[in-house]
Structure formats: structure tokens, C-alpha cells
Amino acid sequence: MKKIPTNIITGFLGVGKTTTILQLLKNKPENESWAVLVNEFGEVGIDGAFLTESGAMVKEVPGGCMCCTAGLPMSVGINALLRQKPDRLIIEPTGLGHPKKILAILQSENYKNYIDLKATIGLVDPRNLSDEKYTSNQNFNDQLNISDIVVATKMDMASDYDECLFHSWVKSLLHQPKSTAIDRGELPLHWLEEDRTTDLIIEEHHHHHAEQEIVEMVLEPGQKFCRKENKGQGYVSCGWFFGAESVFDFDELFSMLSALTAERVKAVMNTNKGFYAFNVANGVVSVNLLSIDGMESKLEVIDTQLLPWDQLEGVLLSLLIEE
């Protein structure tokens, strides 16, 4: 088979990776079929539902940094997608990891005859460059230091100062990547065709857990929902998985998500107004109606500290109007 052009799109939590990939899928050539391997820190796997809506071939690696789960799960996911002979493969690592080990696997003997590794694209919200919480985070820096192209996202919410700081910051990087700024995820397709140019040696700064298998989320007979927790890289997550028969009150759900102070919240929920995707970042709740029917509801909360999960679970259960 011919080598499949492959891009890694990386970036920290809430930077807009999934939004950017969705826009790329929307604008791809009509005669091409693309595949996406998506990795999430949380256990329940939500981004896959967003991306499946676009018609792409999607495989998920949930449950933590793909660097840590990169053995069997990543290889199984890549192999399954390559067997479908896509015209392009996009890999989205979790916002709490960096792509060094992923790059090593893609460049290994196993894939050298099957993958044409193109530019790694690192996304950054320029507003974060003024916040030491991000600039002092090693994963934040590693993701961008290994990128061939650095892209400033969410420019519609950035100030002139943020944009100026972004361009100044890119010039300060030792490997001098190409850079651009985009609004609402509109990354030009031609950036995907750029060749990989960055070959930096980055030290490992976080502990790698033992490689693990992906456990599919399935409810037992009579079980209404299940809850999964995860922790690593200074963050904790809690996710809930409800059966397709569960229906939530849309207005009350929106109010609950608006009140959450967690760093990151994502959900795909079956509501009395339809099946919706909810995305909470920087205190802003965005909502999109999905055309999917009969899907399970999933919600994931990520923060730097443990939150009252039992209390949040009680609120979620109180929003159910059908079971």
C-alpha cells in the first residue's frame, strides 16, 4: 500500500485541537477519506463522538497520555485505521501529554513503509502565554518545542497584546518553527502538507505508567451509569457514562455546566431538546447540536485538584427526566 500522509496535532487543554480537526475534516477534498486517532486524558472518551459526526474514520485511546498508553492501544488503533486505507491520518494526543514517544513509534521500523510522517502542528491559545501556570508547565513547553508549525488559536478572543506576545514568543524558540494565527479553528489545509523538520531531543519530564489495554465502557444489565476516574501530570479527571435511554433536562444541564469552575469540561448528552455536544473552556460553555441518535451520554471533568465528585454525581442524577 502507499504511504499514508500523517500529522500529529498537539496542544494543551482547551486550546481547540478537536475544533481545528473538525474544520480540517469539513474542508478536506471531497474525494478523500480521512482517519483520526484521538487520545483523551479521561476514561470515557468524548472527542470520538464529535469527530464521528464529521464522517471520519475514528479510533479512540482514552485513559491518559498516549505516551503512557502508547504500546498496544496506540498500535491497535493505528493498524485498524491503516487497514481502511485512508488518504490521511491525523493523530490528536491528549492535552496533558506530548508527542515524543508517538513520533518514535510512527518513525519505527513497523511503520516506515506505511506512514509518511508530515509536520507536527502545535496549537497554543496566545492568552495562555501571559499565564505562568502554562508557561512553567513542562508538557506545555514540550508540545510546542517538538512542533514544526506553531499555530495561535482563538484569535477572535485574543487582544492585540496577546497576538504580539505570540509572535515574539515564537521568535524566541530555538528551533524556529513556522507559525500562523487562526480564528475558529480555520487552519489552511496546505499546512498539513509541510514536511517534518524538527528533530529535537526532549527529556522525559513525567512518569510513564505501565502500558495498559483499553477497557470498553459497557453498562451491566440493570446498571444506569458508571463512573471512571483518572489522575496524572498534576491533573485529575472524573467521567460519567449513561445509557442511551437516559435523557437530561437541557436547560438545567446548561446551568450546571456554566457553574462548574473546573479547568476543562466536555460532554455529549442526550437531552429533551436533542443530542448535544457541550464544551467548557475558560469559563465559556459552547453547545452544538449533533445529528447522532440513540447514543450514550458522556461527561468528563478535568481539573488540577479533586472536586466533590459524589456531589456532582448527585446533581447529574437530579437532571434526569427519563431513564
Results as ranks from 00 to 15, higher is better:
57 M>Q: 15
149 I>T: 03
10 T>K: 08
273 K>F: 06
165 L>G: 09
40 E>G: 10
82 L>A: 02
112 K>Y: 03
3 K>E: 14
58 V>T: 02
190 H>D: 04
310 D>L: 08
269 M>K: 06
264 R>Q: 14
60 E>K: 08
2 K>D: 09
13 L>I: 07
136 S>A: 15
90 I>P: 04
102 I>V: 13
167 H>I: 10
53 E>C: 08
259 A>S: 15
282 N>W: 08
210 A>C: 08
97 G>Q: 02
240 W>I: 06
287 V>D: 02
167 H>L: 13
55 G>D: 05
155 M>F: 02
47 D>S: 08
120 T>H: 02
239 G>N: 08
57 M>G: 11
293 D>G: 07
110 N>Y: 11
162 D>L: 10
89 L>V: 00
139 N>F: 07
63 G>W: 00
11 G>T: 09
37 L>A: 07
233 Q>F: 01
232 G>F: 13
309 W>N: 04
322 E>A: 10
154 K>M: 10
95 G>T: 07
172 S>K: 13
37 L>G: 01
230 N>G: 05
189 L>I: 09
78 I>T: 00
277 A>T: 10
4 I>N: 00
68 C>Y: 01
224 K>W: 12
28 K>G: 07
171 K>Y: 06
218 V>N: 15
89 L>S: 01
178 K>L: 14
40 E>C: 11
42 G>L: 04
121 I>F: 00
305 Q>R: 03
320 L>C: 15
208 H>I: 15
25 L>A: 12
22 L>S: 14
169 W>T: 09
190 H>G: 00
196 R>D: 13
34 W>E: 03
118 K>Y: 07
102 I>D: 01
126 P>E: 06
180 T>F: 04
210 A>K: 12
289 L>W: 05
292 I>T: 14
226 C>W: 08
269 M>Q: 08
104 A>G: 12
87 D>V: 03
210 A>W: 12
224 K>A: 13
12 F>P: 02
265 V>M: 03
241 F>Q: 03
231 K>L: 13
125 D>S: 08
129 L>F: 14
52 T>W: 04
230 N>Q: 06
256 M>R: 07
86 P>A: 07
199 D>L: 00
287 V>M: 06
120 T>P: 02
55 G>M: 07
155 M>G: 00
218 V>K: 15
175 H>K: 09
206 H>E: 10
185 G>T: 13
51 L>P: 05
168 S>L: 04
227 R>Q: 11
181 A>Q: 02
135 T>K: 05
276 Y>S: 04
7 N>Q: 00
111 Y>R: 12
120 T>R: 03
25 L>V: 11
243 G>E: 00
130 S>P: 03
147 S>Q: 03
297 S>D: 04
